[in-house]
Amino acid sequence: MSTIAQEFSKGLLKENPTFRLLLGMCPTLAVSISAINGLGMGVSALFVLLCSNIVIAALRNLIPSKVRIPAYILIIATFVTIVDMVLNAFTPDLHKALGIFIPLIVVNCIILGRAEAFARKNNIVRSIIDALGMGIGFTLALTILGIIRELFGKGSIFGFGVMGTAFEPMGILATAPGAFITLGIMLGFVNFMFKRLRIE
């Protein structure tokens, strides 16, 4: 069994959920319009992934394998709704920023993907580390995508105007096709980096 450090680092680069495992595409494309959205989505997804991995790892022997998917989905959906309510009540402005992304987390393939592929077979400690690795990897990927799309789409990063007034923003990046194309090229770039690193 790989060491703890390996378990954590694999989520960041080698098995990055967005660029390598190609999971969680829907929120990635829909949300990465700006860097702050990407960050917000990543953080809330990380939190839910952490909680659900812990609970699923804890219950892994009790849930019969035939009904495991409905059971996991129930647990994930509960956490998402709780996060939604608590944020809405106690930190309204944060909730307003993340508002629409939180229901999206329920259908984020990463969480069920990790629960099905990992949390089901490993103990709680490993599941926590895996959740942290995957969650941070996802947040990183989303924020980078958000920065790129915001930089060229609106000429700003995290809302601060960077490109000056002469810059003509590429409107397409804010739309659906822009998201697809940006992520496609990013995947190509990541593959290129992986091939380059391995050969050197």
Partner: peptide, 23 residues
């Protein structure tokens, strides 16, 4: 297709163009 863009990357770009058409 260049070896880096093969597979998911090129299909994402294709999906982008398809989405442009559907727009």
């Amino acid at each position: 297709v260049s070896s880096f863009l093969r597979g998911a990357a090129v299909s994402l770009v294709t999906a982008g163009i398809l989405s442009l058409a559907f727009m």
